[in-house]
Nucleic acid binder design. Structure first.
Lengths: 227, 227
DNA sequence: TCGAGCAAAATTGTAGACAAAATGAAAGAG
DNA sequence: CTCTTTCATTTTGTCTACAATTTTGCTCGA
């Protein structure tokens, strides 16, 4: 019997995957700026690897639309406009309403209590230090993440948590969009939480819809300011 | 000034992309069966290329979840269960309702007339040869494709047409799920079309919802037959 | 001054070879 | 007979080298 050498913390190793994750992270953090050239040789020498793994990593990122790729020319960091962000939010709204409805129906007891605990933590956290823009903070995403998980629909979860959220984070970092909606968002979470814990699917969806609609509306104002 | 040599029909060339498309097509057609091993060397020799492009192609397909990938082991054709298909349909329903609503608001005049023409073609086509299961036929997808396009939301379009529809086709081929809902689906299209051409967003969404709900319901029966 | 055209440099695309890991089969112990 | 261990084979991971394409800068001429 083989000792499992990687007890935890990882690893599938495979440099191309590690590279893809690192580059993805740097794009999200904004350390790699939109439009910036991603030279294979430069990346290869930076990470002390050959170009093979780099190419594979870039292909993966291209498939996920984190980089724009032109054959025989190369890869560049994809630049996402505010219009893109609006489109993302439109899709997100639709899918999270579904997620909230499904979560209200299907969440297990432990999931519900965990979600409630999560909310209480956020509440106490932001009642002490009150200058925080809760909206789109890591904690905000945690809440939505938990609901996506609770929907018990892996496809839905993947689209939301692995496609849309990262993309939204990229948008945010590329536009310094830190539109903090104060503790308003936190209050809205309370209603969503209540509906989910009571298993009221329709209501959970409705609260989620309003929650995200207000976020989207403020974004729309940013694009075309009201007359 | 350079002559553009590839006047049309393509090409970005780049073997890894060509390979990815071919393999994807074969998975959709069911020529590559679920769970089947995708050996790099085998594919490389089959297409008379080196392993490099093959690896890149497989990485792309893995990112799109058409193949399951295990480091140091290799890639296998992803097998999609009927439960997966149900999850896909749930997400699809939510997104297509949004697409129909947006299409009703934003479709241009020429897009509307084109959609109408498309519908009339399907109508005459299936009134002559009436044995066809319209539902999930290429023509059925054409209609939904046009609406996704008309939503004027590239993110939405991409998820529907490049992620969900292909995946649904894979499911169908892997399960011989040719559940033809007769010309019922065609009739439902008529209502959707009417609502869109009249710009009635809410109604278009509602008809779309019912249209896909009935499809999903019949799928649910397949999984857990009614008592 | 500006643009076309050519040439050199840099970058991407592909191929082939080597290293590392996993798979599978055979041999041996209980 | 079954389970375990070992070893050879196969397959994947990575690297280096070479071919093809693009980019860049220069020269030349109007």
């Amino acid at each position: 019997m083989k000792e499992k050498p990687a007890s935890f913390s990882t690893e599938s190793q495979e440099k191309s995957e590690v590279l893809a994750n690192i580059l993805c992270e740097e794009i999200i953090r904004g350390q790699l700026k939109p439009g910036e050239k991603l030279s294979e040789t430069a990346i290869a020498s930076r990470f002390k690897v050959s170009r093979g793994p780099v190419r594979e990593a870039l292909r993966r990122l291209a498939e996920r639309n984190f980089v724009d790729f032109v054959p025989n020319v190369g890869a560049r960091v994809a630049s996402t406009s505010l219009t893109d962000m609006l489109h993302l939010m439109e899709v997100r709204e639709s899918l999270e309403v579904l997620a909230a409805e499904l979560a209200a129906e299907k969440m297990t007891a432990v999931e519900r209590s965990r979600l409630e605990k999560l909310y209480r933590n956020h509440l106490s956290m932001f009642s002490r230090e009150r200058i925080n823009p809760y909206f789109q903070s890591p904690e905000d995403f945690d809440f939505h993440y938990a609901i996506a998980k609770g929907s018990d629909n892996p496809i839905l979860f993947k689209i939301l948590c692995e496609d849309l959220y990262p993309k939204l984070l990229v948008c945010r970092s590329q536009h310094q969009y830190i539109k903090g909606r104060g503790t308003k968002a936190l209050e809205e979470h309370q209603f969503i939480l209540a509906a989910i814990t009571e298993g009221d699917s329709e209501l959970a969806g409705l609260y989620m819809k309003r929650h995200l609609q207000s976020a989207r509306a403020s974004l729309e104002n940013l694009i075309e300011p009201p007359t």
